[in-house]
């Protein structure tokens, strides 16, 4: 089993850290993982993306032409990556700030109102965990216990008091995702 994921959005939305949590979770579940961020001008100009691969077998290329899953958090990223989802793959997006919705019909498109939910629950900082929850509902390649371990690993110890809040956000995220 192999999952090839691109996560893309604005810097500050937790794109890279969401990827890191997934990678850590995969690692702790004994899988092969790679985490490759765009560290170039796009990161400095505001947009951020990361390619995460979680696989049972050794990973050859950390760079991909196409992905099983695209998790899209802004319009620029949607414009860039919608065409890069494999036929039959899935695209997850938050409609917040999206002006042109995805149009492909050969992939499964899911939307999650994570930003609205995060604002409603006054949990804007957990925004990426609502998204992550939605992804895990559709693709349980790593189980929630390992995700929580991954989260713990990627958070500095002084923030461990926020773990329950994040777990809650992941669970809520699983509920609010829906197929277009």
């Amino acid at each position: 089993m192999k999952e090839e994921i691109i996560i893309a959005g604005f810097g500050g939305q937790g794109v890279l850290s969401m990827g890191k949590i997934l990678a850590y979770a995969g690692l702790m579940q004994g899988k092969e993982v790679s985490w490759l961020p765009a560290y170039g001008p796009e990161q400095r100009g505001g947009t951020a993306n990361v390619t995460v691969i979680i696989s049972d077998d050794k990973i050859s290329s950390p760079i991909l032409n196409t992905y099983n899953t695209a998790i899209i958090l802004n319009q620029q990223s949607l414009d860039k990556f919608e065409s890069k989802v494999k036929p039959g793959g899935r695209l997850i997006y938050d409609p917040y700030g999206i002006t042109k919705a995805p149009t492909r019909t050969d992939i499964e498109v899911y939307s999650t109102a994570a930003m609205d939910k995060a604002l409603e629950l006054n949990a804007a900082k957990s925004f990426n965990m609502f998204i992550l929850g939605g992804f895990l509902k559709l693709c349980p390649i790593v189980d929630i216990e390992h995700v929580m371990l991954g989260l713990k690993k990627s958070l500095p110890e002084r923030h461990w008091n926020l773990l329950p809040q994040n777990e809650e956000a992941i669970k809520t995220g699983m509920e609010i995702i829906s197929k277009r």
Binding site: L27, E32, V33, S34, L36, P37, I59, P62
Partner: peptide, 10 residues
Amino acid sequence: DGLIGQMMEK
């Protein structure tokens, strides 16, 4: 190269 420097792996 920058890719090996920046990517995370086991």
